[in-house]
Write a protein that binds this DNA or RNA. Structure first.
Ligand code: FES
Ligand code: FES
Lengths: 144, 144
DNA sequence: AAGATTTAAGAGTCTGTTGTCAGAAATAGT
DNA sequence: ACTATTTCTGACAACAGACTCTTAAATCTT
């Protein structure tokens, strides 16, 4: 798997918050409600969202009517921000064969081909905003 | 990481055998010698190569002058064979967000973009033969 | 036949990820 | 002030992947 379980859930949660926040971006969404929508463990999701709040990607509020919301408008939040916060960026910088220091020194036999795919994947994460994803999700009634 | 540690070592080992077998493709290469060349644990490599021999990608022979060799000419062995044997093919068929059944049902919001990268990666593994890799390795004196 | 070499197999350890839980802290409503 | 709600924190169990170790089995050399 390219991303860890935590990271995939983190992205889906951010997307859910973004979609639900379309009408009122200021409102806090309870974690329990998000967990139900994504059909994942409430406690596990709590852990993941804590990482995202520490990374200033989300903001949280305790107590009744509390929950989490995006810390920035979804146009300014990109997938790579979430991946970096949860998984780190190693995916986009490591050698496909696990050799140390991809690209900088002598390349490995698969480097040239892999570099193409790697760049494309990195661009995908770097250029895809939460706004675009939530728009698509609503328009085409996609699942998440 | 896209591939597991075991899988990356498996590919590097197959490549090492292919390179060393350029002069005598019939010869068995001792696992200990391969482990030294790749700088990995002998016992761990043994485990990985057992999987490859069971998958009929390599053949082994016990006793003095024993070891492993490719079961087929390197022109007929592709990276995907090794990945399938060790990691399975899940990388090329799973949803980037971890949702069940990528593509077949309603796609997820990142499906269209991810499908492109996924196909490119799959093609890379499916079309890259051990022969090509070992040729490149020898020509350009690459590391593995 | 005996001993050395080398892979096969299985059990066991270690580590990081996944997932659960209980209690603390903050907040709103009454 | 009290209670209900909700996130925060730390501890911990369960699991998978990574890695080690020991013993067995096969084969060659002498
Ligand atoms: S050095 Fe191996 S992929 Fe870049
Ligand atoms: S359905 Fe998510 S990547 Fe295909």
């Amino acid at each position: 798997m390219l991303l860890t379980q935590s990271c995939m859930i983190g992205i889906r949660a951010a997307l859910a918050v973004s979609v639900q926040g379309k009408d009122d971006i200021e409102a806090y969404r309870p974690i329990r409600q998000i967990a139900d929508a994504l059909d994942v463990s409430f406690h596990f999701l709590t852990k993941i969202l804590q990482v995202l709040t520490h990374a200033k990607i989300m903001e949280s509020y305790k107590g009744p009517n509390g929950g989490v919301r995006l810390a920035k408008p979804p146009e300014e939040l990109f997938l790579i921000d979430i991946v970096e916060a949860i998984d780190g960026t190693s995916v986009f910088s490591t050698c496909l064969l696990g050799l140390p220091g991809c690209g900088v020194e002598t390349p490995c036999p698969v480097h040239d081909e892999w570099a193409k795919s790697k760049d494309q994947i990195e661009r995908l994460f770097r250029e895809t905003s939460l706004a675009k994803l939530s728009d698509d999700t609503c328009e085409k009634l996609l699942r998440f």
